[in-house]
């Protein structure tokens, strides 16, 4: 077991209301990474957003 202590920001913003604003939609983000070798990594960015807004 490695001795590294990984600290993750836990983002807690979810929840509701009755109307939407299309330009403002980001709710939370987290990162994951997976080592292929010492220099190559698969980087994953999970983005949580307003369900009805544009996809990117």
């Amino acid at each position: 077991m490695k001795s590294n202590t990984l600290r993750f920001a836990i983002l807690l913003f979810i929840f509701s209301i009755s109307t939407r604003v299309s330009a403002s939609h980001l709710v939370g983000v987290d990162f994951e990474y997976q080592s292929i070798d010492s220099n190559r990594y698969i980087i994953t960015c999970n983005v949580y957003r307003d369900c009805g807004s544009a996809s990117t």
Partner: peptide, 30 residues
């Protein structure tokens, strides 16, 4: 009511050298 969807963005990146603090930063308005 506001609903939440999860969008997954992913790719393989290559660091040009070894370092103790490669920082990957997302900066988005909205």
């Amino acid at each position: 009511s506001l609903g939440i969807e999860k969008n997954v963005f992913q790719d393989t990146i290559t660091f040009p050298f070894a370092c103790t603090d490669w920082t990957i930063l997302l900066y988005q308005y909205g």
